[in-house]
Design a protein around this nucleic acid. Structure first.
Length: 328
DNA sequence: AACTCATCCAACCGCGGGCAT
DNA sequence: GATGCCCGCGGTTGGATGAGT
């Protein structure tokens, strides 16, 4: 199947998108709807590969995207879902209707992962001084744990099947969680949650007018010297290993989570060309009017365990909240 | 003020699945 | 079944920016 990469062609522009390109792309998608990305560059005249167009749309221009300022609830959900699903960012993003998988992935890699590992280190170092502490659930036998897991799973299944509703987002409060979020993000993302594409574009332009591009090359035509960056190459499930696999596998095996997920993607979340959500499932379109509360209750409950560097099983939220009351 | 280092995040890359032929 | 195309996903990169010295 040795298909050549689509972006190897001559004359394909790379690098940051300009507002003009954004406008062209948005106006095209507004007219034709998302999809058939292969045709987008040729029909719009954009010197971008189809993949780049799709990425720009799904991660930036698509309506309904909330940027920056992850709320407490969002953080908790990401932590729990990551523990449950692993680095399946798209699946995680499907539970956070306003967030892109890329955004969540970045937030995890740059912020949450460090936060959690820091807390884990604190926890494990303290555990070293506590004799006889072998588990966060010392009084819970394996059988009890499994029963509890099944109960939780049942609860989650119930909640997911009947309760997913995008309205939950309105109940989420907006806090400045990230101390170093960019100023543009801070000014832009506080109020607008479901913005239209034109709003996205206008805010882009505003930002652009405030900070006109000094000299955006628009494409990396020169090969940069490869300086070895200190990027921490993350293996999957870096901080929350083996145990999570079991958990998610159990989740899947017990009641077919995969099928639920795929059904979300294929039926409930299918979109007409007029709908702007392309890869982002429109959670709860035809769901009952019971918001995330049940799911959240489960997600924010103490059932997700992780493993410390010493191999100890620790309930994540307990650990987080016990060790650091100001975590959220 | 100038420089270095750390962090953030938009965008790229490559892989794999699904589908059509 | 084999092949090719399209699309989505997760991992990674590198430029921009902020913080520290």
């Amino acid at each position: 199947m040795g298909r050549p990469p689509c972006c190897d062609k001559e004359g394909v522009k790379k690098g940051p998108w300009t507002p003009e390109e954004d406008i062209i792309l948005v106006s095209y998608i507004q007219e034709h709807g998302p999809g058939n990305w292969r045709a987008v560059p040729t029909n719009t005249g954009l010197l971008r590969c189809s993949k780049s167009c799709r990425l720009r749309w799904t991660n930036y221009l698509r309506p309904g995207i909330k940027r920056g300022n992850f709320t407490d609830n969002e953080e908790k959900m990401i932590i729990h879902l990551q523990a449950l699903l692993g680095n399946r960012w798209a699946a995680i993003a499907s539970y956070l209707p306003q967030r892109t998988d890329n955004d969540i992935k970045n937030y995890w890699n740059t912020y949450l992962k460090k936060k959690l590992s820091k807390i884990q280190n604190q926890s494990s170092s303290r555990d070293d001084h506590e004799e006889g502490f072998s588990s966060s659930q010392p009084s819970m036998s394996r059988g009890q744990w499994e029963r509890r897991l099944q109960t939780d799973i049942h609860l989650a299944k119930q909640a997911l099947s009947e309760a997913l509703s995008p309205e939950k987002s309105t109940s989420l409060t907006h806090h400045d969680q990230k101390p170093s979020s960019s100023s543009s993000d801070q000014t832009l993302s506080t109020t607008t949650t479901y913005a239209s594409s034109t709003e996205n574009i206008s805010r882009l332009l505003k930002s652009w007018m405030r900070n006109p591009p000094i000299k955006r090359s628009g494409g990396k035509t020169t090969t940069t010297t490869t300086t070895t960056t200190t990027t921490t190459t993350s293996s999957t499930n870096t901080t929350l290993p083996n145990n999570n696999v079991d958990l998610s596998e159990a989740f899947e095996s017990l009641f077919g989570f995969e099928s639920f997920e795929s059904s979300n993607n294929n039926s409930d979340f299918s979109q007409s060309p007029d709908q702007d959500h392309e890869s982002k499932p429109n959670i709860g379109n035809n769901a009952h009017q019971l918001p995330f509360s049940l799911l959240e209750k489960w997600l924010f409950d103490e059932t997700v365990t992780t493993t410390t560097t010493q191999g100890k099983e620790v309930v994540l939220s307990d650990m987080i909240l016990d060790e650091n009351p100001n975590f959220f």
